[in-house]
Design a protein around this nucleic acid. Structure first.
Lengths: 355, 355
DNA sequence: GAGCTGGACTAATGCGTATTAGTAATCATT
DNA sequence: AATGATTACTAATACGCATTAGTCCAGCTC
């Protein structure tokens, strides 16, 4: 244990023949203001180098100071096995900005229990307060913990959520993005657009649907063929009905439904995008998958970057606890968007391949 | 910002009409041993509930010496852009074990300068010190910094390197692995095996070559056709010579050379593996690439896991600073290994595709 | 030569906790 | 009635740091 004893300010003070106070002054940059001579300052810095001194995080945060640590907490494991994990890009962004701002990152792994779930207060201890502040991300919510954290006045920022009052957040504008998808389809000539989703659940889903509906009616006189299904229920008959009723484009809520739609399309003999344009609103982390479909994507890297900046601003008192940062969504490419051409085609293979 | 100060043990003590010491005893479970009456304990617990008490980690670790933080340091950014980044699997393993051992992870981002390189002592201060210990990984070495760190007596573990005396490391057994490759080829019937590498450089390369040579001679009477080249220099003529001299299998040092060999093979008209078995010794992070070649792979996840365990053991004083942990390599699959059949084939496409 | 000013520091304190060394009261033993 | 043991606590301290309130001394003024 004593083998790894770390030098303290007192050790430095001893070596440099000054008091611990003076050392602290030099470290916190208040030396000039107080009036410590240049010689003494150099002597102290030399001693620090010699002993390899680093401030003790615990002690620092104990008495209220900053320690340059930014926490990252998710309610799921941070590095799940799959390489194209959804969180990866967020972390890339977070790390980038941390580098730029000279902060270090703490990944709270200790909050995970044997059951795989993560809970801030699992052990009855809030480990988070070791860091200056925390960025929280994750699909699973744990509202009671978030509320408690907020009540404690602990500084943190949410990524992707906007539903907790009094907590700054960084998110993407789903309403606008869904509207932009409508614009894109309408400007290509589509008038009858279907909307395919699972039964409603999360707020992003609600926002996307809202954005879709609003823009549809704003663009006027457009038929909407809306359907909420579970993937397994998506039978080809639905698609056949949609095509028969003149639908030329379908907006699809998520990736899983794309797969279902793809197979239905090849059943029914509909060529995408020749006979049916398709846009996906939530592509998840499937960016790397070969088949290219037009889809919105959450600017995960950018959200990660912003979250760090927002947290720092919060710590600096530059923004209030109700700060909202909304980053535009990345709009879909034209892979599966074409001008409408009604009717069924003869040869229409699957874009995703067999299975 | 109506931030309420978090209750401390003293607040509880006041409410429960006892001393702070008693509260601490109850919390740490030493109450029984010391002999605090049941009534008093209940009174204290009630007070804790009432005030919503949570222990302060900082204060705890302040007097305990440890803070439960394990540092991770690389000389490159931890989360580079590509999702199949080489570090990812190490991190997955590190996180897994951190979860199991209840430790948190610190990613040192602040050590990166504007030029993109990372240096522990960049700021003149050893930030690493804020963690209980550090796991260092990375291809680029920065020997002087590592040496200095060691000289300071700072506890850390190296992944993938074994060349710094007095520092525990976790690595994979390249000598044995290269030998196993020879075994595998010989047992399939190969007698004349080529070895293709770039000019020697790193110690892993040396170990692999050594393992190859030793096992080759141990297996007796086997011709080795060895060649060290830069990728650009790998002309088809070399392969033609090798085939002409009866070589039926080639052991290739790394992924880049595989690409070169692949195109040479299709130039020369050699079918892999029908006419030439190929095994790659260092597949890097290309696991996700479509084409399947027989190759060794570094058990990155497992190395990550072990490194955390080793660091903890080091901190506990259970192992010495010269501890070596060697994990077996993952042996190649049979994708490009076949029984030898001499001669050139007519139709032999590229396994990697055009380019 | 008493009082003042400013430069260059230091002693003392508190943050929240765990631990060590007590204390004070009751009870049991001889 | 004195001694010892047990019960149920508490006072004091240390951890490493930042901060507040000084101290000490040289140089200057009137």
């Amino acid at each position: 244990m004593s083998r790894f004893a770390k030098p303290s300010q007192r050790d430095i003070a001893r070596l440099a023949q000054v008091s611990q106070t003076t050392v602290s002054m030099v470290i916190t940059g208040k030396a000039e203001a107080i009036g410590i001579s240049y010689d003494t300052q150099e002597r102290i810095r030399q001693a620090m180098r010699e002993l390899g001194y680093t401030p003790n995080v615990a002690a620092r945060s104990l008495q209220g100071g900053r320690n340059g640590l930014i926490g990252v907490h998710t309610f799921e494991p941070v590095f799940p096995v799959s390489a194209d994990d959804y969180f990866h890009q967020f972390l890339v962004g977070i790390e980038q900005m941390a580098v730029e701002l000279g902060q270090d990152l703490v990944l709270f792994a200790s909050t995970q229990g044997a059951d795989g779930t993560r809970s801030i207060y699992r052990t009855g201890v809030n480990r988070l307060n070791l860091a200056d502040g925390v960025i929280m991300l994750g699909i699973e919510k744990n509202d009671s913990e978030v509320a408690r954290l907020r009540a404690e006045g602990y500084p943190f920022v949410l990524i992707g959520r906007r539903d907790v009052a009094g907590v700054p957040f960084v998110t993407t504008d789903y309403v606008e993005a869904a509207g932009a998808v409508v614009d894109q389809l309408v400007s290509r000539g589509h008038r009858s657009i279907g909307y395919l989703a699972r039964p409603l659940d999360t707020s992003p889903q609600n926002e996307r649907r809202e954005g879709f509906r609003e823009r549809m009616s704003a663009r006027g006189a457009i038929t909407v063929f809306e359907r909420f299904v579970e993937p397994a229920d998506l039978v080809s008959s639905w698609l056949r009905d949609a095509m028969a009723s003149g639908t030329t484009a379908i907006v699809v809520e998520n990736y899983e439904l794309i797969a279902a739609l793809d197979s239905a399309a090849s059943d029914v003999g509909v060529a995408i995008p020749e006979h049916l344009s398709v846009v996906c609103l939530d592509w998840g982390a499937h960016d790397l998958n070969g088949a290219a479909w037009s889809h919105l994507s959450v600017p995960r890297r950018e959200l990660g970057r912003r979250s760090v900046a927002v947290l720092m601003a919060l710590l600096e008192g530059e923004i209030g606890p109700d700060h909202a940062e909304v980053v535009p969504c990345e709009l879909p490419g034209s892979a599966t968007i074409a001008a409408p051409r009604s009717g069924l085609g003869a040869d229409s293979g699957s874009r995703l391949g067999p299975r």
